[in-house]
């Protein structure tokens, strides 16, 4: 034939191509498709994981921000309570110190008054003694009797108002 078509050559080319196809179909393309699918799956999984990680990171950041805000509020609250407690404690301590000081002062005043009273009594007695002694020297007799002593004491007592 002018175009060179020969049945045997045609069949041999046909069979050769079919052998190529069947071998590739049986062993070549399944591996190829599996490899491509695995890679696509891996990439898809990687993208999904990255997206999930991004969301988790955003959630974590949001959670951290919430915790930070809560911690800040709690810290402020604690600080305010501490200031208030400190203020209260300071007031208490001041009050206590003031009371204590007042008590000390009162005690001191009381003791002073007692001592003054005691000193007055002693002074009165000494003045009486001195007056008696002076009168004894003036009149030259012993005036140390109970009646004289009473009289002098009454005088001294009356003279305190002078």
């Amino acid at each position: 034939m002018g175009l060179g078509i020969n049945v045997w050559m045609f069949v041999s080319q046909l069979v050769s191509f079919l052998i190529l196809f069947l071998v590739l179909q049986r062993w070549g393309f399944p591996i190829l498709i599996k490899t491509l699918d695995n890679r696509a799956h891996t990439i898809q999984e990687g993208v999904e994981n990255a997206e999930r990680a991004r969301k988790e990171l955003a959630d974590a950041q949001q959670r951290i921000e919430g915790l930070m805000l809560q911690a800040r509020q709690e810290a402020q609250q604690t600080l305010a309570q501490a200031i208030k407690a400190g203020e209260h404690l300071r007031t208490e301590i001041e009050q206590e110190a003031r009371d204590r000081a007042r008590q000390i002062v009162d005690q001191a005043e009381q003791r002073i008054q007692q001592e003054v009273a005691q000193a007055r009594i002693e002074l009165r007695e000494q003045v009486a003694n001195l007056a008696i002694l002076a009168a004894e020297h003036v009149i030259g007799t012993n005036l140390d009797t109970a009646t004289n002593r009473r009289l002098v004491s009454e005088f001294v007592a009356q003279s305190r108002g002078l």
């Binding site: 175009l3 060179g4 078509i5 020969n6 050559m9 045609f10 041999s12 080319q13 046909l14 191509f17």
Partner: peptide, 10 residues
């Protein structure tokens, strides 16, 4: 070779 091209075409 027309035999080959014809085979693949068929």
């Amino acid at each position: 070779d027309l035999n080959l091209t014809l085979a693949i075409a068929i």
